[in-house]
Amino acid sequence: MTDVKAPPQPEVTVATPHKRRRADRRHIPVLATLALLVLMYSLGVANYDNFSDTQVLLNVFVDNAFLLVVAAGMTFVILTGGIDLSVGAVVALTTVVAATLLNDGWPAAVVLPLVLLIGTTLGLGMGAVIHYFKVEPFIATLAGMFLARGLSLLINRNSIPITDPFWTAMAQERIRFGPGIFISTSVVIAAVVVLAGAAVLAYTRFGRTVYAIGGNADSALLMGLPVGRTRIAVYTISGFCSALGGVLLSFYMLSGYSLHAQGMELDAIAAVVIGGVILTGGSGYLFGTVLGVLVLGLIQTIITFQGTLSSWWTKIVIGILLFAFIVLQRLVTRRAR
């Protein structure tokens, strides 16, 4: 009576009947966002004069370069299944510290690396608390948010203008492609961040470990992956991206203000999710996040073009579109299943 006694069994081959469909399914959320982006753009072009100008599209990048950088950092965190609520506050802190130090006569060459270091250190600290003390990311980064916002309020309650020559140069520098067609240096920086981030996610052990942790952190640990180090690293990256986003915002605004970037964490999360990254982690692409940021930017642009709408309509429309996108993606992915 053995159940090991193998019955005369032909060799088992495992069929993969739905091979193609399987491979495609992971791209569906991103493709859906892309399709809607195209649709929104077409609607804009059809309804408003001058919407088709190249510069309108480029301005979406110019106006949202800082958000793109912040959302790129957020993507790393969300891919591991975490969340970072502190990004908006770190952006604000960065602008305030930079403005204060510059006004005190510190050279830009010192201030720039210093503020980046501060943001990175904050991220590192939150990551360490999350990993070593098992505090939930939501709570640890909420504390980080209070801390960063509180620090910037403590430094200065008021808006501080920046007059540093380097900063103003960066703010005014335009990379021109033709008459009236240009991007700012911030867009170039954001593009570099996105490309570097995407390469890291797709082609390095660290990047793949990020996906593995989002898929199943316990398994990742048992497979011998450096889970703790990676988890701390994604919050550090997010901290760095927030600080860099803060620098770009200070280029854009030429001021430091503790109330800058209020609620930016929600914009970043919304962009990441609209871009098809699953909030529980393990699935999604940085390219999707770029699309998500563009969707948010395009909403703003359309509202601006409409012109007759009060500011609260922006919120309502973002809410409605957020709803439409999410439900649509949900239906698309469900049907594919």
């Binding site: 969340i83 929600l266 999360i269 919304a270 999710v273 909030l279 529980t280 009060s310 500011s311 609260w312 309509w313 922006t314 919120k315 309502i316 973002i318 809410g319 409605i320 957020l322 709803f323 999410i326 439900v327 949900r330 469900r334």
Partner: peptide, 30 residues
């Protein structure tokens, strides 16, 4: 949104968080 359509709660309620404040402002005319 959460239990019938199956949207992650943080996102489902983010919708009303953003739009709801706008609705309140719309009601009071700001």
């Amino acid at each position: 949104l959460v239990s019938v359509i199956g949207i992650q709660p943080i996102i489902a309620t983010l919708i009303l968080m953003v739009a709801g404040r706008g609705i309140a402002q719309l009601l009071t005319g700001g």
